[in-house]
Amino acid sequence: MQRFIIEMGMGNDLYGQDYTKAAARAVEDAIRHSSIPMFEALGLSHDEMEVRVTIGAQEPDKVDTGALAAKLPRGRVTVSAVKGGLNVTNPDSGNVTVIATAAVEAFLPKQ
């Protein structure tokens, strides 16, 4: 497989400390402006595409990778979560803002 695109994004959950919500927003940020016209131009099927998503979060075990994979519209998707992102504590309230990052990579068989 050969990587032909990588997009990066960031998302947060300001009040709920929901790592999956922050991760979903990071994935959305990464792909929101993406358009890959080569599939139509070259007659390729989206089924040939492998999509690998890596989420960075301070508590990766709290990211529902299956729920994130289900939200991606094309390709064969795998999602993994690793230690990364940020937790930022408001010193006045103690509230924790969860910030997640995402790298979305797309691969095709060598053409």
Rank of each mutant, 00 (worst) to 15 (best):
A23M: 09
A23Q: 04
A24P: 09
R25W: 12
R25F: 14
R25G: 13
A26G: 02
V27P: 00
V27M: 05
V27E: 04
D29P: 07
A30E: 02
I31H: 00
R32N: 08
S34Y: 12
S34Q: 08
S34R: 09
S35N: 14
I36L: 08
I36Q: 02
I36R: 04
P37C: 00
P37S: 00
P37L: 00
P37Q: 00
L42R: 15
G43D: 08
G43Y: 08
G43L: 10
G43N: 09
L44D: 02
L44A: 03
S45R: 02
S45M: 02
S45F: 01
H46V: 01
D47K: 08
D47A: 12
D47V: 07
D47L: 08
D47F: 15
D47H: 06
E48I: 14
E48N: 12
M49K: 06
M49H: 03
M49A: 10
M49F: 06
V51K: 03
R52Y: 07
V53D: 01
T54E: 10
A57E: 00
A57Q: 01
Q58Y: 11
P60D: 08
D61R: 05
V63L: 05
D64V: 01
D64Q: 04
A67P: 01
A67N: 07
A67L: 05
L68K: 10
A69T: 04
A69G: 08
A69S: 07
A70L: 15
A70R: 15
L72M: 15
P73A: 14
R74H: 03
R74K: 04
G75I: 10
G75P: 09
R76F: 14
R76M: 14
R76L: 15
R76W: 11
V77H: 01
V77A: 05
T78W: 11
T78S: 15
T78Q: 12
V79T: 05
S80M: 11
A81W: 00
A81T: 01
V82I: 13
V82M: 12
V82C: 13
V82G: 10
K83I: 10
K83S: 11
G85N: 01
L86M: 11
V88Y: 04
N90Q: 11
P91E: 09
P91Q: 09
